[in-house]
């Protein structure tokens, strides 16, 4: 038997384990997005319902938990998921570059078949797409959560913040661009997460999961895009 010369790296830090971690973080974020989209759609029920829902999120399980206690528990879970997802992504990105001389899919001199055989656009834009989404999320939090950036005017009412912001065309445009990046990320990411966790068991399952990824992505994109477009069109207002 050949001598095992190369040093062993512990399996807990293996690329497989990191992909599993990234997948769990990603799935938690997708679940958050579903809840977030549901909350956004309350904008169609009017200011009282929307602001009431926002206030309710802070009083869940009161008085068992202090004010905003449940919300902060969810926020910490979400932050840990985001942190683990991004950390794993950068470590894996570094390893992929090291394995390919830093050139990834462009390491052959031939200019023929640069796009490979069957890979999707979504699958090879995961990393830069993820960075785009991260930058948008920072801006989005400063705008609508922390109330620091206030295009269209700051307000204590979440409903008014949302309506003021999305009445401006470039706010809606930047939101749509970020959603496009999110859509591509989820199109590949949902399938990839399931496969990374070992759930892809056959060629048929691979097809089904890809169809599920497209469906979930489409529902999320439509659900997130409809409120800002309706606000911009003036159908939902103060």
């Amino acid at each position: 038997m050949m001598a095992v010369t190369a040093a062993r790296r512990r399996a807990t830090g293996s690329s497989t384990a990191l992909h599993g971690l990234m997948a769990v973080g990603g799935i938690i974020m997708v679940l958050f997005l579903v809840a977030h989209m549901y909350g956004n759609l309350k904008v169609f029920s009017g200011q009282a319902a929307f602001d009431g829902y926002s206030a309710y999120l802070r009083t869940i399980l009161e008085p068992l938990l202090p004010y905003a206690g449940a919300l902060w528990i969810l926020r910490v879970i979400l932050l840990l998921s985001v942190g683990a997802h991004i950390l794993a992504a950068f470590v894996l990105w570094h390893r992929a570059r090291a394995a390919t001389g830093g050139r990834g899919g462009y390491r052959y001199l031939s200019t023929a078949n640069r796009r490979g055989v069957q890979r999707s656009y979504a699958s090879f834009t995961m990393r830069w797409g993820g960075i785009t989404i991260a930058l948008f999320v920072i801006y989005h939090l400063l705008h609508l959560t922390v109330n620091v950036i206030a295009p269209g005017g700051a307000s204590e009412s979440p409903y008014t913040r949302m309506v003021n912001g999305f009445s401006i065309w470039w706010v809606v445009l930047s939101y749509a661009v970020a959603l496009a990046a999110l859509g591509l990320h989820l199109r590949h990411g949902i399938f990839s997460a399931l496969a990374s966790l070992g759930a892809n068991t056959s060629t048929t399952t691979r097809r089904r999961y890809n169809q599920a990824a497209v469906l979930v992505t489409a529902v999320l994109l439509i659900g997130f895009l409809v409120p800002p477009l309706c606000i911009l069109a003036g159908w939902v207002g103060p």
Binding site: S14, S15, G116, S123, A195, T203
Partner: peptide, 29 residues
């Protein structure tokens, strides 16, 4: 998997180029 990583191979992001070129038809699953 420890040996695979120790040799310096990268991780799988489920792109599927491998199975497309595989002469033996090993499936992605």
């Amino acid at each position: 998997v420890e040996q695979h990583d120790a040799e310096g191979f990268g991780g799988c992001s489920q792109i599927g180029e491998c199975t497309a070129v595989c002469p033996a038809g090993i499936p992605l699953d």
